[in-house]
Nucleic acid binder design. Structure first.
Ligand SMILES: [Zn+2]
Ligand SMILES: [Zn+2]
Ligand SMILES: [Zn+2]
Ligand SMILES: [Zn+2]
Lengths: 135, 135
DNA sequence: AACATTATGTAATAATATAACATTAACAAG
DNA sequence: CTTGTTAATGTTATATTATTACATAATGTT
């Protein structure tokens, strides 16, 4: 592996870093336009700049999109082989979102075969319920 | 169970029926504005009329929303205890979507406990891969 | 009949996301 | 170091998805 590739794996671009930092320190999932509002003082002025950074961050597994909420959270499975095999719990009252990292669950889903015997190494699972505080 | 309730369970309203019929006979998931375009000749003129019908149809389990695609498909698990426990396979090339009805999978997910011992009877799982035709 | 609930109609607007095009930065190869 | 290539950025405009607000009508219940 060459230097350039290592850098690309380790170093985010300026916009990517700004937006990742914001998402990473947020206690809750952030929506694209909330992000835009927050980073305008740092010179990121247009939706597209945000969406491009988000796309890249999702692609490299630094963040995940919560599809049912159109919002983004940082990945805390530092190893993150799971960037394409994600599971979350979502509180239907306070909207708290937690990434689930269960070896059993991920193994079960990675080995799951549909009726045609097809396996899938990419999936997204969202559980809904009430968090500790809300139940 | 009283008559009113039975009617509510069996009979869709006019707009609901029109929109359900369209989705039910579609071979692919339909998006809200594609639905709107298709039903304008039947007098449904505004997005809100479509979204209201969609909300209701989702609520009663006649259709499901494919969250990653913002599109809707009819449920073909006629029994449909699973309207809040859904699983789909999605082809990343042709966008074909198939509802998965696997007793094993649904049991596994309904019995899954997170780190806090919490169980969830509501979930949505989307698998991504290539369908038979596309691989 | 009176009341409550569900569904509808309509206009306006909010929220989410992408297209198109120009420019600049990073970087690999010769 | 310059040439070709890819990744990232900047900017404007626009497309797509979804909701608010308010008025009316249909349906179901007592
Ligand atoms: Zn993760
Ligand atoms: Zn909660
Ligand atoms: Zn179903
Ligand atoms: Zn396919």
């Amino acid at each position: 592996m060459r230097t350039g590739n290592i850098n690309r794996m380790q170093n985010l671009s300026k916009n990517q870093q700004i937006i990742f930092d914001l998402i990473d320190k947020s206690p809750e999932p952030l929506k694209a336009y909330a992000i835009l509002f927050n980073v305008q003082k740092k010179g990121i002025k247009a939706p597209l700049q945000v969406y491009r950074a988000l796309d890249k961050l999702v692609e490299i597994g630094k963040i995940h999109k919560i599809e049912s909420r159109n919002a983004f959270i940082a990945c805390h499975n530092s190893s993150c082989q799971v960037s394409k095999a994600t599971a979350f719990s979502i509180c239907e009252i306070c909207e708290k979102v937690t990434e689930i990292s269960s070896v059993g669950l991920s193994k079960y889903l990675a080995n799951f075969k549909d009726k045609d015997g097809m396996k899938y190494n990419k999936y997204n699972l969202e559980f809904f319920g009430l968090c500790k505080k809300c139940r």
